[in-house]
């Protein structure tokens, strides 16, 4: 068991995993997607999680993103043990403090760009006018102010990912999780997206990203290498 505990900014940490296990039972067989992981992430850090296919990267993201629960072990989010949280409490945590960016963008096709960006605000209970203003502001930030009334299907991959980033930022989250955000993009577009993420990180957002590509991982402050559900090693750290 490797114990890649890193704590780059003294005692402050936003996420801590202690002896975290995620075990999938497939009939009689058990798949240990996470096998006793210990990890700590500081606020404002930028992480790239790497590793071969099936090593547990997505599982790690789902756990950290509060979309899934550990089979065993503890997950502290900002000091709170969320292993005990109810489904509603987890939803609320995601709603208020977490933003997601996915490889396949995951925009809702029947909604316009504006409505997609407004989605978290809708669940936060913002009124229509304020939401609309914020959506416009965010679209400007990602360079899509002219596309607000388009449907996602009318956009290029890079544009869709920008919309997804704008949406992830709508609730002003502390952490952004990105599972292979450049996986469906060409190199140039991918680098543009990474530029955007880096800016966000410079403005104080914690970013945890899964990627296969070393070029992309190089943008991050830390590179966490996984293998067989465990952390093999962590590179970087000289911010």
């Amino acid at each position: 068991m490797s114990s890649g505990v890193s704590n780059p900014k003294g005692n402050s940490e936003i996420i801590r995993l202690t002896d975290a296990w995620k075990i999938y039972k497939m009939g009689r067989q058990e798949v240990k997607a996470l096998a006793g992981v210990n990890a700590s992430f500081a606020p404002g850090s930028f992480w790239a999680i790497m590793g071969p296919s099936g090593s547990g990267k997505s599982t790690m993201m789902n756990i950290l993103g509060c979309l899934d629960r550990l089979t065993k072990g503890h997950y502290f989010f900002d000091g709170q043990d969320i292993s005990t949280f109810s489904d509603d409490e987890l939803s609320d945590l995601r709603l208020r403090r977490i933003g997601f960016i996915f490889q396949s963008f995951n925009l809702i096709p029947q909604l316009t760009v504006q409505k997609n960006i407004e989605l978290p605000l809708y669940y936060l209970g913002w009124d229509a006018r304020r939401s609309s203003e914020r959506a416009q502001y965010l679209a400007e930030q990602v360079g899509l102010a002219e596309r607000l009334n388009h449907r996602p299907t009318e956009l290029s991959g890079g544009q869709m990912q920008r919309v997804a980033i704008a949406r992830a930022l709508a609730n002003d989250p502390q952490i952004i999780f990105a599972d292979e955000p450049t996986g469906n993009l060409d190199t140039k577009t991918g680098l543009q997206i990474l530029d955007l993420l880096q800016k966000l990180n410079e403005n104080g957002k914690t970013i945890i990203m899964v990627t296969h590509e070393p070029d992309i991982a190089a943008f991050a402050q830390y590179q966490m290498h996984m293998r067989d559900g465990q952390i093999e090693r962590i590179d970087g750290g000289i911010g």
Partner: peptide, 16 residues
Amino acid sequence: TREIGIRRAIGAKRRQ
């Protein structure tokens, strides 16, 4: 299903 997943990931509660 996918739309539901997106909404849930963003933070929609079950009852919503």
